[in-house]
Design a binder for these strands. Structure first.
Lengths: 342, 342
DNA sequence: TAAAACATTCAAAGCGCTTTGATTTTGGCG
DNA sequence: CGCCAAAATCAAAGCGCTTTGAATGTTTTA
C-alpha cells in the first residue's frame, strides 16, 4: 500500500492525504480522521526512502565509535549506544556507526557529514580543545556533544555530567572522614572529564589546605589492568594515600585487586570512591567490598542525546541547549574513616 | 554534485554514467575510466536515499536488541553490535536497532520486516524451538542467525560456535585432572547454547561413567550476582563439586567471589573453566586467579554476520551457509588437579 | 557492399513521497 | 444575492537515482 493507492481509495489527492498524515493544519478535521482511519486499517506505512529523497533528509544519526589502539571497543560506548539505539528506533531513525581510531576521528566526522547519509551527528569522548568541535560547527548539520571541551569558549549544544562537582563532593566526603593523603586514578589527561574531575579533587583539597601529591596521581586509559598497576604504585610509597578516587568502575576493579593482594582492607586501610557509569556488568554493589560511587547512567545519556538529536532534525534549529546533569554520590562500604595509625 | 550535473559535465547521459559507476559491462572502458576519474575529482557521491528509492532496497540491516526484564542491555550484545557496526559502516549500510523484551521479539521482528526499512535481519540469543525462525523464513528477506535453535530441523543460515564441543573438551580436561564431582553454572535453560553446552558436559562425563548431580547444576541469567549465588550453593553441599564450568566470564566473576569468601582457593580447592566471549572488560587473565577459558570473540562474530548480510543483500541469494566456529581452550591458573583430601 | 550482429549510448519512465502554486468550496457580510 | 476572504483540496513538479527499450555507431559476415 502506497500513498497513491491510499489516496485513490479515499477519493482524495495525494497532497491532502500526505498532509493529513503529517499533521498539517490546512486539512479538514473530518477528512483527517477519515485518512488516519484508512491508513490504520490498511496498515499503510510511508516509504522512508521516498520520504528521505523528497525531504532531503537522511533520517539517520551518525555516530563515530571510538576504537582504541588495540582495536577494542569501549564498554562505555556500548552502553551509551544501547541508549541511542533504543530511542532512535522509536523514531524510525537509522544509525550510522563509523568506527575510528583517535587519529581518524576528524576524518570520519567529515566523511559522515559529507556523505549526506546522516542528518545529525554525535560525538563523545571529548578532549580538551577538541578539534572536532570546530569542524562540527562549520558542517552546518545538527549535532550534539556528550561532554564538553576544556578550553573551548564557543557555545555548543551538549549533555554533560557535573564531573567537577561530583569529584569535589566525593573528595569532601573523604576529607570529612579524616583522610589527608589522597590518590587519583583518572582517565587519560587530555580527556575533558578527566581534567574536570581532577579540578574537583584539587579544589576540595585546596579548601582544606591539602594537595594531591604528584606521585599519587595517574592519568591513564581506563582498564582494570591500569587501575591495578596504579594502585600498586600508590601502595608502595612510604606515605601511601589512604583515600583514592577512581574515574571508572573498571579502574576500581583493578585497584581493588591491588588492595587485596597487598593484604589491605578496602574501607579500612584504604578508602575508595569510583565513578559509576552504570554498566550492567560492573555493579559497584557487587564488588567484594561494595563501592562508594558517584553515579550517572550512560544509557540514560544515550537516550537523551538521541531525543535531542531527533528533535533537532525534525524541528527548527533551537538554541544550543546545554544540559549539565547532577551526579549522585552513593555511599557504600568502600569508604571509611581514615586509619589512625599514621 | 549529483548524477545529472556529473553527466552533463562529461557530456554523457545519466544512464551511461550510472552504469559506468556501477560496473555494468556494456560501457566502453575508456568511458568508464573517464567517468570514474571525474567522479573522484568532483567527489561525487550518489545520494543513497535516491538509490534506495530507485532500487527498492533499504540499505540497512535490522537488529532486534534483546533487553532484559530489568531493562538492562546485555554486554554481550553490545560487544557484538560493535562488530556489526564496524562492518556495516564500511559498506555504507545503516543499522536499525529495535530493542525488545523477550515477549515482544516476534512482534519487533515483524515490525522491522514489514516497515520496509530494512533489507536484512539478524537475530541472536537463540532459544530452543525458536518461534522467530518460522517467521524469518516466511518473511522472504535475507537473514542470518547467530546461534542455532535446538530441535529445529529446517535449514537456515547461521553462524555459531561449537558450544557442545567446547564444553566437552573443557570437561575432559577437568576429568584428566582427576576431578569427579562437577558443577555447571549455565545460561537460562531455554537458550540454545545452554542446552548444547550442557550436552557437552554430560557427554564427556558419561564417557567416564560420571554424571552431573542435579543440585550441582544451575541454569540462570548470566550475571555476576547469579554466578555468586550458584557457587555459594554448590559450596554448601556435603559433596561439593571440585570442578565447575561457567557459561560466561560474568558468571565466573561472581563464582570466584563466592570461592574467595568461602576461604577456598581457585585452581586448588576448586577448578573453574568459563566461556569467554572476549569482552573488553572482563578479561580472564585479569581475574585474581587467571581463568582457564573456552574462547570465541563475539565481536568477530558480529563482523562476520554483517559481512554475510551485506553479501546477501547485494548479491544473489545463496545457500543457507552454516558456519560452525571452533572454540579455543585456553588453560590458565584456575584449573588444577583435583584435591586429594576426599 | 548490404545485411546482420554487436557495442555503446541515450531519452524517458518510473520509484513514492513532499511541496508549490493553483483551483475549488465554503461561509460571512453588505 | 453577489462578492471576497478563508478553508480545503488538487494537479503537477520535483527529489536523484536505476532501468527499460530504443537509437546510434561499428564491425563482421555473406
Amino acid at each position: 500500500m502506497n500513498l497513491r493507492e491510499l489516496s485513490k481509495m479515499l477519493g482524495l489527492s495525494q497532497t491532502t492525504v500526505s498532509r493529513a498524515l503529517n499533521g498539517f493544519p490546512e486539512v479538514n478535521e473530518d477528512t483527517r480522521e477519515r485518512v488516519l482511519k484508512a491508513a490504520r486499517k490498511t496498515g499503510y506505512r510511508p516509504n522512508r526512502a521516498a520520504q528521505r529523497l523528497a525531504t532531503g533528509k537522511a533520517g539517520s544519526i551518525g555516530l563515530v565509535m571510538p576504537i582504541t589502539d588495540t582495536n577494542h571497543s569501549d564498554v562505555h560506548f556500548g552502553e551509551f549506544l544501547a541508549g541511542v539505539g533504543e530511542e532512535s528506533a522509536r523514531h524510525d531513525m537509522h544509525l550510522v556507526i563509523m568506527p575510528a581510531g583517535p587519529d581518524d576521528e576528524v576524518a570520519a566526522l567529515n566523511k559522515l557529514a559529507t556523505s549526506g547519509n546522516v542528518d545529525a551527528l554525535f560525538i563523545a569522548h571529548m578532549r580538551a580543545q577538541d578539534p572536532r568541535l570546530t569542524i562540527l560547527q562549520t558542517l552546518g548539520i545538527p549535532y550534539i556533544v556528550h561532554g564538553r571541551s576544556y578550553g573551548v569558549e564557543s557555545n555548543f549544544p551538549f549533555i554533560d555530567i557535573d564531573n567537577e562537582g561530583a569529584f569535589r563532593d566525593a573528595t569532601k566526603l573523604l576529607i570529612q572522614l579524616g583522610h589527608k593523603r589522597f590518590g587519583l586514578i583518572n582517565g587519560q589527561a587530555h580527556l575533558d572529564f578527566a581534567i574536570r574531575r581532577r579540578a574537583g579533587v584539587v579544589a576540595a583539597l585546596g579548601e582544606h589546605g591539602l594537595t594531591l601529591a604528584a606521585d599519587c596521581e595517574v592519568q591513564i586509559q581506563m582498564t582494570d589492568e591500569n587501575g591495578q598497576k596504579a594502585m600498586e604504585n600508590f601502595l608502595q610509597q612510604d606515605q601511601r594515600p589512604t583515600a583514592v578516587l577512581c574515574s571508572s568502575t573498571a579502574l576500581a576493579l583493578g585497584a581493588l585487586r591491588a588492595v587485596n593482594r597487598a593484604g589491605l582492607k578496602l574501607g579500612e586501610d584504604v578508602s575508595l570512591i569510583a565513578h559509576d557509569d552504570v554498566l550492567p556488568l560492573l555493579k559497584p554493589e557487587n564488588f567484594s567490598v561494595p563501592l562508594t560511587t558517584t553515579r550517572s547512567s550512560l544509557r540514560a545519556a544515550g537516550i537523551r542525546v538521541a531525543q535531542r538529536l531527533v528533535a533537532a532534525i525534525e524541528g527548527p534549529p533551537s538554541d544550543p541547549a546545554q544540559e549539565l546533569w547532577n551526579v549522585e554520590l552513593i555511599v557504600r562500604g568502600s569508604t571509611g574513616p581514615a586509619p589512625s595509625d599514621t
